[in-house]
Simulated assay, not measured.
Amino acid sequence: MPPLATGGARAVPGADRRHRDPGGVRRQPRGFAAPRLAAVSEGLAELWEQLVDAMVILAREGLAHGDLSPYNILVHEGRLVIIDLPQIVDVVAHPTGPEFLDRDARNVATWFTARGLAAADGASLAGLLRAEAGVD
């Protein structure tokens, strides 16, 4: 699957525990799954940039993850892998679609901000995503 963002973040449908396709899960050496973002404490500025890039690409396609959080983002060899995509939302067609963009932005920005990354601004990210999706 090609990268979703120039920063290298990827979206891998089916790479979560609800899907039984072990080929879709990114594995570390010795068979361990890549850690969730929630368990990572280094390189957060670069990971934030990757995540913003990926979210912008989704928004340009009129999509939001719909339940984005540090628990459904993996970090594989310094690159983000967005998982758990079955609930992806068409933000243009859905009556409350823009609210999904806002929630995803708020969820991830809150996590990054709590870990000291001042650049993680949920309101600014939500505005950017709405503009990119054309629902501003």
Rank of each mutant, 00 (worst) to 15 (best):
D90T: 08
A131H: 14
A118R: 14
L128N: 00
R26W: 15
P2T: 06
R60V: 00
D121F: 12
L101V: 06
R27I: 05
G116S: 04
A118V: 11
E132R: 07
W48P: 09
A120T: 05
L117M: 04
R20S: 09
R79E: 05
E132H: 07
F112G: 02
D67R: 15
I57T: 15
G78V: 00
D121T: 11
A45H: 08
E61R: 15
G31I: 03
V12M: 09
G23T: 14
R115W: 06
S124V: 11
L44V: 00
Q50M: 08
R103W: 07
L117C: 04
A11K: 09
V12R: 04
P35S: 07
A133G: 04
L4F: 14
I88G: 00
G8T: 03
R10H: 09
A119E: 14
D67P: 11
D136H: 12
N72D: 10
A59L: 08
G8I: 06
I82V: 15
F112M: 08
V135R: 14
Y71A: 09
G116F: 06
W48S: 02
S41V: 13
D16G: 14
N107H: 12
G43Q: 00
A45V: 00
L58I: 03
V25G: 02
R17Y: 10
A114N: 10
W111L: 03
R18T: 15
D16W: 11
A34N: 05
Q28K: 11
E49A: 15
V108C: 14
L51F: 04
G116A: 01
M55N: 02
R30S: 08
P86C: 04
R79F: 11
A33K: 13
H19C: 07
A105R: 07
L4D: 07
A59E: 09
P13R: 11
Q28C: 09
E61H: 15
V25C: 04
P3F: 14
L125F: 01
H19N: 05
D84R: 13
P3R: 13
A126P: 14
A54R: 05
V52S: 00
T110K: 15
P2G: 11
V40E: 06
L125H: 03
G43Y: 04
R36Y: 12
L68M: 07
G24W: 08
P13Y: 12
R36N: 10
A123D: 12
V25T: 12
S41H: 11
G122K: 04
P98Q: 01
V56C: 08
P2C: 07
G97R: 05
V56M: 06
I88C: 02
A126N: 13
D90M: 07
T6C: 04
M1S: 08
T96I: 12
V56S: 05
A34C: 09
L101E: 05
E42G: 12
R36H: 15
A109S: 15
A11P: 03
A133W: 08
D102F: 14
T110V: 04
R130H: 13
L4Q: 03
T113M: 08
E99G: 10
I88P: 01
A133T: 11
A54N: 02
